[in-house]
Simulated scan of single mutants.
Amino acid sequence: MRIISSDEIDACLEDRDVIETLRRAFRSNTIAPGIPEQVIERLDQAAGRLNVQPAWTNFTAQGDVTRGYVGCSLSLELPEQKTSSSSLYILFSGTGAQPIALIDGMRLGAWRSAALHALAASYLSREDTARLLVIGDNPLLPRVLSAYATTRNLTSILFAGTSAETRRKAANQPSLAKVSLGETTEIHAAQEGADMICVAGPDSERGSFHALTYLDPPVGCHVDVLDNAATIPSAFLEEARLFSSNMAAPPNPDLEWAADLFELAKGSKAGRRYYGQRTLFLPSAKTGLEDYALAAHVFLRS
């Protein structure tokens, strides 16, 4: 069995290939059943959580058992962790059942998340999207911004409430070398000129989503939400066309979702219907299909 490290993952991946790998995955008939998150009770502490997300080649539809894989992501969150979670991905041969790869799930997840949001943006943001406003901070931001630049010709990015370290890492992304990067504290004014808004996470200094209380994107703007904890104003949610990655497990079942990435990738439902429409993307917590597709991609190229 091969052990594939974070450095090896970075060495064999490129934004465009990862985005297209996920696009093909959403068009495939890969099987990715949902398994409820397991609660781990802890003495005198908040509970821990174990998330198991399997997926495998549809051997019946394929009509062949001599090729294909079975995989599973394992993520563990405990109250005393300093990071959000720890994660591994294990890939088995679909023929002999032997484990063939153990992959760094944290780095795999970072690439998957970035490509997922960029894939959604390729369907939901306007083709002439050039000006991006980033609200808040998130360690995934440099990777996500690099992926955005693969799908849209960005000319400027304004950061609001993003840490200096995250901005520095973003500036070092090769794909953003020709993009103008700046800062602003006037979020209300900045969003008026934005073609796309990324709700990345809490303000790096305040530790809250204070800016979202007056989130009011201009017509034609696409809003991409990285942090599911963000509270988006109800007025915007009622007016915008809403999308997620997997309608089998939408992030908020009470909202009216227009389509998911399965439907967008297969062309069975439309994304942006007209130029001035406001759209929003909020991913599902179910990522078994995406993790499986990317794990197989890494295994074949590393």
Rank of each mutant, 00 (worst) to 15 (best):
A229R: 09
L158I: 02
P174A: 10
I100H: 02
I103K: 11
I197Y: 07
D260N: 08
G109P: 00
R143D: 02
E127Y: 12
R168H: 12
L102F: 06
R49F: 15
G96Q: 14
R131E: 14
E41C: 05
S28P: 02
F92L: 13
V70H: 02
Q62F: 05
L119M: 08
G34S: 08
R2M: 02
T30S: 07
P54T: 13
R107E: 15
D7C: 03
K169C: 12
G276T: 13
N228M: 06
L294C: 01
R131D: 15
R168Y: 13
W111N: 03
R241Q: 08
A147E: 10
I4L: 11
R42N: 13
L91C: 01
Y123S: 03
S85K: 14
D260P: 05
A285Q: 13
A285P: 02
R301F: 10
L226M: 11
L102R: 06
L74T: 06
E77C: 01
L74C: 04
A101M: 00
L108N: 05
I135N: 06
A249C: 05
G71L: 08
T155L: 09
V179D: 00
E165M: 06
S284N: 09
L226K: 09
R67H: 12
L22E: 04
R112I: 05
P142S: 10
G34R: 05
V223G: 00
A296V: 15
T287V: 10
S208Y: 01
T30A: 13
P142C: 06
L154M: 12
E80R: 10
Y69C: 11
P33G: 06
A97N: 08
S284F: 10
R143S: 07
H222R: 06
L78G: 03
E256D: 13
T184H: 10
G48D: 06
Q45S: 15
I135Y: 08
A211F: 07
A190F: 12
Y89V: 11
F262M: 13
D15L: 01
Q81S: 08
L176M: 10
L119Q: 09
M247W: 00
S86E: 10
L91W: 01
C12E: 05
P33H: 09
I35D: 05
K169A: 15
P250T: 03
S234D: 00
L158G: 05
I31A: 08
R2H: 07
A285S: 14
F243D: 09
N153F: 01
I3G: 00
T30H: 12
L116T: 03
T213D: 15
P218H: 00
Y274H: 07
L154W: 02
L43C: 00
G220M: 03
E41M: 09
N51H: 04
D44T: 04
Q38G: 01
R2G: 00
S284H: 11
Y123W: 03
C221Q: 04
N51E: 10
P283T: 06
A47S: 15
E263R: 03
M1I: 14
D254Q: 14
R49I: 12
L88Y: 12
S245G: 05
F92R: 02
P139V: 08
S73T: 15
P54K: 14
E192H: 04
D227T: 05
N228W: 01
